[in-house]
Design a protein around this nucleic acid. Structure first.
Lengths: 242, 242
DNA sequence: AGAAAAAACGAGCGAGCGTTCGTTTTTCTT
DNA sequence: AAGAAAAACGAACGCTCGCTCGTTTTTTCT
């Protein structure tokens, strides 16, 4: 699946998901009409990401946010109780969305090598579609309160575990050779993160998310795929190098 | 060279270097005795990194810093004019030190493959020895003022360029195969950065900097080394896999 | 259209920030 | 040991922050 197709499928998905997520925080929001909440929370979240990714969440003032979101100070506080709650809402919404999409795509695949491809590709596509949030989440994790920080770290390790599991399963069925899979999974995660942490760099060099995905997959396969499977894969249409 | 040996050589180095760097900012420091300046700036820098890496530089108050460094508010302001200047001093000192050490080690090597090994290894060792600063520098870059931010980005691209150059030279002399070296250099950088950005993770798993270096080198070589050189290297004592 | 409900508004509050400077303590000099 | 120079001190200042609440504007309902 290419990136354009992927983006279409998730933007349909996003609408249903948003309403679902709202129910949890509904009690803390003073606004009655559902439509208004969705519309304005969207503006608020976008503005938060835009400002925070420039100067940091802590340095963003509520006056900055008011200006960028096009809502008065008073209006803002109809949607959340305090600055920290705004962050909590934003984090929990995006995190559960990301998890859901990622799992669905991986579970759809049956072959081990395909699972690895898909995990890498979908993670990259997700981080491309929601780059501001992925960047934000990475950069702000250490500045947030204890319980929230724990959730962010757990989420990070969870993704890594997915890769480790795939590599372990692949070794059992002789698709991958023996390696330190925990370490390889860490390194895959690091390479995935570079895409959304340094987007400015890749944008300037005109490297598309598809190209990056291909390259990343080729590195991992060169390192992990067993010799027999390397050959199979080559005859199936190259491994995307160069 | 193992990490312990490396650390010894740079701590000797650091003392001379510190005095050298002082001269630049000497005019803004109200304290006369050189020894006092060196001692207290060290305390101030350490405290800054400790607090900032917990809650962010912007969130660190001068009262926090005063407490952690063991100096009064008034005393602090004898060493820098304002909070932002403190950051500038810290950044310029550590950045030029890092650059110097890295270059010296790489230039000492003559073989292309050795240059690649050394570049990876020394960068990892440096980031291990100065982990708080490397972490700080990465996390705070986006929050600092224009000119300082530009220097940080330039420094990031500079290191990447070193790797790209080595890979290009290596392809010419048939040590490395043809790849997109710019992209490979990016990815090497990403893997190096993961070491100091997620040290808590690697510490918990008891992975030493030497192990990580070995693993990283093996990934890069599996991907880049030409078939003939892969064989040569294996007979010379393995490539550190598993 | 007019009344009631909902949403948006923004000046103002107290707390806490970066920074200053008159004073006290420590160190050096003779 | 005493006076001078250097360094450290910390209460106080002006300003900006997160957040509130009485008021105004917009939307909904009959």
């Amino acid at each position: 699946m290419n990136y354009t197709a992927f983006k279409k499928t998730i933007s349909n998905y996003a609408k249903d998901f948003c309403n679902e997520d709202l129910l949890e925080n509904r009690k803390n929001i003073r606004i009655k009409k559902e439509g208004t909440v969705v519309k304005n929370l969207d503006k608020i979240f976008d503005a938060t990401l835009k400002i925070s990714n420039k100067k940091g969440f802590q340095a963003m003032t509520m006056r900055d946010l008011s200006g960028e979101a096009g809502l008065s100070m008073g209006a803002l506080y109809s949607y959340f109780a305090c600055k920290e709650d705004l962050l909590k809402m934003l984090q929990s919404q995006r995190r559960s969305f990301t998890k859901k999409i990622l799992e669905e795509h991986i579970n759809r695949e049956t072959g081990i090598a395909d699972k690895l491809h898909t995990a890498i590709r979908v993670h990259l596509y997700l981080s491309e579609a929601m780059q501001p949030w992925f960047y934000f989440s990475y950069m702000e994790t250490k500045n947030i309160s204890g319980p929230e920080q724990a959730k962010a770290i757990e989420s990070e390790l969870y993704t890594e575990k997915i890769f480790e599991q795939i590599l372990n399963d692949g070794e059992k069925s002789k698709v991958f050779i023996h390696r330190n899979h925990k370490l390889t999974a860490s390194i895959i995660k690091a390479m995935l993160q570079d895409w959304y942490l340094k987007r400015w760099k890749y944008a300037k060099r005109n490297i598309s998310v598809e190209q990056y995905a291909k390259y990343l997959i080729s590195i991992v396969e060169t390192f992990c795929l067993s010799p027999e499977h390397k050959k199979m894969y080559k005859t199936r249409g190259g491994n995307g190098l160069h």
